[in-house]
Design a protein around this nucleic acid. Structure first.
Lengths: 137, 137
DNA sequence: TACTAAATTAGAATTATTCTAAATTAGAAT
DNA sequence: ATTCTAATTTAGAATAATTCTAATTTAGTA
């Protein structure tokens, strides 16, 4: 184990972005990408980081998560919940969402095939397709 | 025109539900279902109703929209926005969402075919599949 | 007509998120 | 190395959507 490759890849993306390499951003990435694909809210991240001993303000957490998202280092997921989740899985994929438990799980893009789609409205271009499979107990 | 059939159908659903037939609920349904399939936020509804001369408190709007949703008289839609939208289109369908304009448009279920889907996790059951086609200018 | 549980309401409370303005810092220029 | 400047961080205030509270009203039943 010569360093976690998820972390390395994310740090590389940060370096290649116009964002400055601050200690907060580096700590954040190390915490977020440590355990592979994960979903978390801003509050989750705030606590996760706090547990590592580092202290980053909630405002900074929000700032960074949003900036990471707009620079492709994270994805944002909105399921039928009341808060935004961030996703370290950057590959194209979909989600199971269980409203009762609030649980969000990845679905590999390969496991879903969309074989028919309507034409995109005049003057607009396709950006992404999100499939949310709502499940319950 | 012997009365709007969308309104009639929604009112029938209200009557068949355990919800009481209050003047607020009836006004709401008449306003919401007047123009066919529509998407609106709670605030939109509040203003829409106010324009008809009727006054219903915002708390009641929220209460009713939520109750209508859980009794199948409305659908709730969450796109990549910061508020919840309610949808009078009860048929199974999907959505185009343009983040820039905030515009949400229906896609008929027939225009989308999902020909492959992963198996549902242990002990859970499939509830619904939501496809959001994100578009931009 | 009276009764009771459900519904409505104003306004307070809550939650997630963004904003503000002051202090700090990364990275470029010297 | 030192200085400089724009970007970043931060605490705390502000905002926006939504839910809660507790008092009043009402629908539908007895």
């Amino acid at each position: 184990m010569t360093g976690n490759s998820h972390i390395q890849k994310a740090l590389k993306m940060l370096e290649n972005s116009p964002l400055k390499l601050t200690s907060q951003r580096v700590s954040l990435i190390k915490t977020l990408f440590k355990d592979g694909n994960q979903h978390f809210s801003a509050e989750d991240v705030y606590n996760k980081v706090k547990n590592t001993g580092v202290r980053i303000s909630l405002a900074t957490i929000y700032n960074c998560l949003n900036q990471f998202t707009s620079h492709g280092i994270l994805k944002m997921v909105k399921a039928s919940s009341d808060k935004v989740y961030f996703d370290t899985n950057l590959k194209s994929h979909h989600h199971f969402f269980c409203k009762a438990s609030g649980e969000l799980t990845d679905i590999d893009a390969k496991k879903v095939r969309i074989s028919k789609l309507p034409k995109i409205p005049q003057g607009k271009k396709l950006n992404s397709i999100e499939v949310i499979v709502n499940i319950s107990d």
